[in-house]
Design a protein around this nucleic acid. Structure first.
Lengths: 168, 168
DNA sequence: TATTGTTATACTCTATAACTATA
DNA sequence: TATAGTTATAGAGTATAACAATA
């Protein structure tokens, strides 16, 4: 391949000072990015079989689990812009996986729910993603798995609170 | 704000079955994405002061730490396509933060190195990113921090090996 | 034949502003 | 005045194919 590039294949964490990304490896952000890119590519490949992307899968998940939400609720839950949710909801509706219904109490709003075929597709896609997720987590010691999820959620919560404090 | 959305603010991990993203929260990929998005927004905001983005900062880091690499080396190290590296290297060179030199041993290749001002800018940007990274990691118990980095690298390594096995 | 750097292109995700209809 | 949904648009990141020069 190319010269000068050595990889740590034996252990996940290497102190090899010759690694050209050694400065970046100390940052949690860099490791987060690389891990997420790998997982994202993996999950995306799985979802192709269901004609779903991570975005459409996530929205279908939220709507299936909690019928009656409005689009702005779903946007807030998934931390995506309302404007970016529109095309996703459009696509899911066009494929008859979800249904929009006018909220009788607020004529500006649509109430979302998954159709039978939407729930069925979601169940199958969820099972495939879960199988894959368990395979990914198999690389981590069982006692560490909950710690990992906890740490990721702590990072997210901390940064969101920091940002909200700053914008006050 | 909106109705029907409850947030877990007390603890990072919640078993509240009313959380509308409860199905997704079990997936490491979903938590990875949310954590990375938060970190990425945070780091990007910091790098604005140096007129850097995460991509240009990462490339400058690798070139500063290990002078003499070629573009294809840097691309392999950071797992980006060579074609996508060109514009980043162009920008860094135009700003005189790095220099391209013809490799005398291989006239197809350019050897990259950081200029003095490139190293100086990198040092300052690195210090700011490090301060921020430590603030992020402060949310996690000290004993868990190494475990987190280790777990993230294990995930990346495992998935990369899985993919490489499949494509054989 | 294969590799290095490059160009062109396309697709996704993300962010912002502005509009309409309703509240 | 503010909110829900929408449209348009622009930026960034990413992926692929093809090319000239060189190995």
């Amino acid at each position: 391949m190319s010269h000068g590039v050595r990889r740590a294949s034996e252990t996940a964490v290497s102190n090899d000072s010759a690694l050209p990304d050694r400065s970046l490896r100390g940052f949690v952000g860099y490791n987060l990015k690389r891990a997420y890119n790998a997982v994202q590519a993996d999950v995306s490949r799985t979802l192709v079989a269901f004609d779903l992307r991570i975005g459409t899968f996530s929205v279908l998940s939220v709507i299936s689990d909690t019928p009656g939400l409005r689009q702005s609720d779903v946007a807030a839950i998934l931390s995506v812009e309302r404007s970016n949710l529109v095309l996703i909801v459009d696509e899911l509706e066009r494929r008859k996986l979800i249904a929009r219904q006018q909220d009788p109490a607020d004529r500006r709003a649509y109430v979302l729910s998954a159709t039978d075929s939407g729930q069925e597709l979601y169940r199958r896609a969820w099972a495939a993603v879960r199988r894959q997720d368990q395979n990914t987590m198999a690389a981590i010691a069982p006692a560490e798995r909950a710690n990992l999820l906890n740490a990721l959620q702590m990072i997210e919560t901390t940064l969101r609170e920091d940002r909200d404090d700053q914008s006050k």
